Simulated scan of single mutants.
Amino acid sequence: MAKRTAVRRAARTSDGINPRQPCPCGSGRRYKACHGAPGGAVDAMVNRPFEGLAAETELIALREFVPSATTPLPLAEPGEREITLATVLPMAAAGLVRADGTALVGLQVQTRSGDVSRDVARAVRWAMTAEPGEALPVVGPAGPDDQVRLQDLLDPAAGLDVTLHEDFSWWLPADVTPTGEVAASLERANAAIMPTARVDAEGVTAAYWVDAGDKAHLRWVRPEPEERLLAALARLSVRGELGLGENTRYAGSFRAHGLLVPVWDLDREQHPREWSEPATALGRRLADVLASVDEEPLDEAERRARDGLRGRQITLR
């Protein structure tokens, strides 16, 4: 038994991180394959890379779980070329410029940097001046004098005009028919998509309906600090007001780039549009209790509910 305990202790790094656990940078990879890899990033990890941007919650959704979407980037100083932010580009490229000069930057990219905002900003700056037909496979390490971030490039008060796509046919110009390996790659990418729809409702942002196969979910990126949000969710739970209606339940939450993403199980038979009104109502209830938890401490029942919610962490598939 002592030998096994020693092995388990040795499996942790000097920082106390289990190499098999998700990397604290929020990349979604195991620590041993990300910042714990040989030659991994040595720069400081930024826990909340999109903080300060009105589009923070949408950027997190696009990076973490929205499969196929594009949006024009609201640059603070627009140049001659519009930059389109995409969830995924062909070959998971960090950026590309089509033959017609259309520039795209990928958000769901592999990186060892500790600052996603800086990496995307470097791809944006590359796309501004790259020649038509060029591609940026990956963003390399940043030098000490190359610290520009998205916060330096975007209008901080601007939101995102997100367009969801049913597949990845937008990867190619409309007049191009894919063949050979390109067609096979496109088919593989399309096959991996889970149907996703944005929940358009009053006062609701960064909330998405997702069909996971056996059930549907609502994934909602929230901007509040985690402890404050958990307190509000706990108060709603004790009141029996945490659901979205019949045949729904609060499933748990996951953390992404410094924010909490609550998840609800939904009735898969209902159309995504049918969740707009329930989401609006839940948003209003949540706003009310968020104000109350700042003034009224949680009672014993609410504290127990909060502890239970804190332990209900889920894993995306």
Results as ranks from 00 to 15, higher is better:
Leu298Glu: 01
Gly258Ser: 04
Pro195Trp: 01
Ala135Gln: 14
Lys3Gln: 12
Glu300Lys: 12
Arg125Lys: 10
Ser276Ala: 15
Cys23Arg: 04
Gly133Gln: 02
Ser237Asp: 10
Thr177Arg: 11
Thr5Arg: 15
Asp100Leu: 00
Ala201Ser: 12
Ala44Lys: 11
Ala127Val: 07
Arg235Leu: 05
Ala33His: 14
Arg30Cys: 11
Phe254Met: 05
Gly252Gln: 01
Gln108Ser: 14
Pro141Asn: 06
Glu246Trp: 09
Leu290Ile: 08
Gln313Lys: 13
Glu77Trp: 05
Gly283Asn: 08
Glu187Asp: 14
Cys23Trp: 03
Leu236Arg: 03
Tyr208Phe: 13
Cys25Ala: 12
Gln21Ala: 14
Pro38Arg: 09
Gly114Tyr: 02
Gly79Gln: 03
Ser113Gly: 12
Lys3Asn: 10
Pro72Glu: 02
Ala123Cys: 01
Arg306Asn: 05
Asn190Leu: 09
Arg268Ser: 14
Gly16Asp: 01
Gly252Asn: 03
Asn190Ala: 13
Ala192Gln: 12
Pro195Asn: 04
His217Met: 15
Pro178Ile: 05
Val293Asp: 04
Arg249Pro: 06
Phe168Cys: 06
Asp294Gly: 15
Arg12Gly: 10
Ser276Trp: 05
Leu104Ala: 13
Leu96Asn: 08
Phe65Cys: 03
Val66Gly: 04
Ala76Leu: 15
Arg112Asp: 13
Leu230Val: 03
Leu282Arg: 03
Leu59Gly: 05
Cys34Met: 10
His257Cys: 08
Gln151Ser: 11
Ser253Arg: 09
Arg98Asp: 11
Gln110Ile: 10
Arg30Asn: 06
Leu107Ile: 14
Ala41Ser: 14
Ala41Asn: 13
Val7Thr: 11
Lys3Pro: 09
Pro144Ile: 10
Asp307His: 14
Glu80Gln: 13
Phe50Asn: 01
Leu259Met: 05
Leu282Cys: 00
Arg222Pro: 02
Glu166Gln: 12
Ile193Pro: 04
Thr111Gly: 15
Glu181Leu: 13
Leu85Pro: 00
